[in-house]
């Protein structure tokens, strides 16, 4: 089965799967983006590594979104460098009715694209069946959250998003469920970056909320079964439309989500994990500090996880323990 790579959470994996293609949310490898000259010129390390990782992927097509300027422009680079078809999904930044209509029409356009690149056009019943399958898998995943370590849960989210079975929780001994509850917020992780979760838990924290763009926060909201007469695609669009995201304008939805989930999980510390040049997340640092009476650790993770970062993580938890 041909796989189709996609760049962020606003691309519905179900739609790709319903077209008979394999959805692949690509979390790029750090090594692939090691060309630091591009990064020093202002390219986001994540966007850069994503493009570099595509070279190693045999995907039949690539879907980008307009969630940020850097990814929007990356789609253009693909056309210049790669023979594979690329698709740029217009994800509105505002959230009015008109903007939702645009998103829905973009999903319709995406469906046509997927059919053109080797997929088949699903019937409404097929799409509904695929959506139900994904919704069930996500429900099971969320129900099992407390049995996973931070890293395992992050990896399980990726697996389920890619249509794979949920991995069984393992290494429960390493789980620090009595640790200090931490929320990790920010940019998507690169492959291997879940080391941050391990470090937080090793030093006495417990990652109870993964509010990164590749974490729990980025999962679509489960929708009730489509009402008779409501097209399946619209129902699908609605479930993705309300994903809280830093790039939405205004991005109050992000803070409503963080307020609610951090209170419910008694979070005591926040780690903002962002890349240099990611303006979208960088600009939220001041607001996080202003809004929450909690320690906020600002981690610019443009470089691989370094001893210096490790020391900062350790010091952060020491401070939290002392409070």
């Amino acid at each position: 089965m041909n796989s189709v790579v996609y760049s962020d959470a606003f691309v519905p994996a179900e739609l790709i799967a319903a077209c008979g293609l394999r959805p692949l949310r690509l979390l790029p490898a750090r090594a692939a983006g090691a060309d630091s000259s591009a990064v020093s010129q202002g390219v986001c390390p994540y966007a850069h590594a994503f493009m570099a990782s595509l070279a190693q992927s045999d995907a039949a097509a690539v879907i980008f979104t307009t969630a940020c300027d850097q990814m929007r422009r990356s789609c253009e680079l693909l056309a210049a460098r790669d023979h594979r078809p690329g698709f740029l999904l217009n994800v509105p930044h505002t959230q009015g009715d008109g903007a939702f209509g645009l998103y829905l029409s973009e999903l319709e356009r995406l469906r046509r694209f997927l059919c053109e690149v080797g997929g088949r056009c699903p019937t409404d019943a097929e799409l509904i069946e695929t959506m139900a399958r994904y919704a069930t898998a996500r429900r099971s995943l969320l129900a099992a959250r407390s049995r996973f370590t931070g890293r395992q849960f992050h990896e399980a989210i990726l697996a389920v998003s890619n249509g794979l079975p949920m991995p069984a929780p393992k290494a429960l001994a390493g789980r620090a469920s009595d640790g200090i509850p931490i929320a990790v917020v920010g940019s998507p992780l690169m492959a291997g970056d879940a080391e941050l979760f391990d470090a937080l838990e090793r030093f006495g924290g417990h990652v109870v909320l993964d509010a990164t763009d590749s974490g729990e926060m980025a999962l679509p909201t489960p929708q009730p079964d489509p009402q008779p007469g409501t097209p399946a695609l619209e129902s699908l669009a609605r479930s993705y439309w309300h994903i809280p995201a830093a790039f939405r304008r205004p991005n109050d939805g992000l803070y409503e989500y963080l307020d609610r989930e951090m209170a419910a999980r008694a979070v005591r510390g926040i780690v903002l994990r962002r890349y240099v040049w990611c303006d979208t997340w960088h600009a939220e640092l001041g607001r996080l500090r202003q809004r929450y009476p909690l320690s906020v650790l600002d981690l610019d993770v443009s470089e691989p996880f370094s001893p210096h970062t490790l020391t900062r993580v350790e010091a952060f938890l020491e401070v939290l323990r002392a409070r």
Binding site: Q70, N90, P92, T94, R249, P250, T280, R287
Partner: peptide, 27 residues
């Protein structure tokens, strides 16, 4: 929408300080 991230992020920071903004989309 299809604008630079710099401006969008800075304007959002401004709004968070209490300056209400009417956002409109250029896709």
């Amino acid at each position: 929408g299809a604008t630079c991230d710099d401006f969008s992020a800075i304007a959002q920071r401004l709004e968070a300080l209490g300056y209400r903004i009417l956002w409109w989309e250029v896709p």
